[in-house]
Design a binder for these strands. Structure first.
Lengths: 181, 181
DNA sequence: ATAAATAATTAATGTAATTAACTAATTTTG
DNA sequence: CAAAATTAGTTAATTACATTAATTATTTAT
């Protein structure tokens, strides 16, 4: 190992947290994909079902209140992807008969989405085991500690969403970087 | 909105935390991709550079000690992807001249990876702004709170990695599910 | 009435991942 | 020690998920 390279970067709790969040997320997605593969779904498709099931624990529902059934553009917003991408995912779920689509009668550009009976049944059937896993993973911490983590996560998200210009400005130097690529 | 569908799922701090972690991670990757695009890299490629820079904050280095330079299979392990995938990512970084590869002289199956001078320069140049963003995101919480949060994340990861059989067993019922798909 | 904005889609494409099959080297084991 | 199993890496074919750009339709704003 190169001595110049060694210990170049200092330990930092903050960076450890961020890198752990990325790691944990990929592990969660991985295990989710394996589990949902049994019913022919991916984690991403599953998240759409959770949205249409009005899962109140989804960050999107803490940011945005909604009265009517969701539409594709709201899902795109929540999942942080393009509308075009959501169209594809929705088509798969429509094919599987897990969701259905209907035109908004006030605004005919809009198409609203909802779970079919089959979709509702699937979500209801799997919710207990989902919660089982989640409670197992998070056991051993107090309610207060968990509440603090949640605040922490929400603060990070809030800053990423509402102050992303400020965040990108930190990286301004990259633009004028004289590292020749 | 369907009344049967409404409020089907109960509020749960634990589920909120898990869903927030997934959400936050996708936001972080998104903004990372935007920033690193300026130097022609993706977040995933960037993570490889951080590994080769021996960033002590990477979860992988808390799980595994390593003496020698990393090899592709260790990166695959850490990033939770296949070796085949790492091969591709490495080829891109080799092409860009940011890393180099050499054969282990004890075991000729192995190829070890390290940053080139150019790679080291790039990591060093960007590390301050990376830390700037991270500190901004996480400000306002005490050292103790952050430490507890890190323990929490590490517990989750530990259980996902070492007890994944137990975790999958929660979902056994999905296999015998009579939801007809 | 025209222009701008919003919602959804389509088509073409790119990227990051996968699996399966393969080569090569090393380690295990019978 | 020779055969079998394992480990490391690669290649080729494929898939999942994402993108951009262009298009249609509708609604809202000027």
């Amino acid at each position: 190992m190169n001595e110049i390279n060694k210990n170049m970067i200092k330990k930092s709790i903050e960076e450890s947290i961020v890198l752990s969040i990325l790691d944990l997320s990929s592990q969660l997605k991985k295990i989710g994909d394996e589990v949902y593969q049994k019913v022919g779904l991916t984690t991403q498709q599953w998240l759409i079902l959770l949205h249409l099931a009005d899962n109140p624990n989804l960050p999107f529902f803490k940011r945005e209140k909604h009265e009517k059934d969701l539409m594709a553009s709201e899902l795109a917003d929540s999942l942080n992807v393009t509308r075009a991408n959501i169209t594809n995912l929705i088509n798969i779920l429509l094919d599987k008969g897990l969701i259905r689509q209907y035109e908004d009668n006030k605004d005919r550009r809009k198409k609203r989405l909802k779970l079919t009976k089959k979709g509702i049944t699937l979500v209801n059937k799997t919710q207990p085991s989902r919660l089982g896993v989640i409670n197992y993973l998070t056991e051993g911490f107090s309610k207060e500690e968990k509440q603090t983590f949640l605040c922490f996560l929400e603060q990070c998200m809030d800053k990423l969403i509402n102050e992303d210009e400020k965040i990108k400005s930190f990286h301004k130097l990259l633009e004028n970087s004289d590292v020749d690529l």
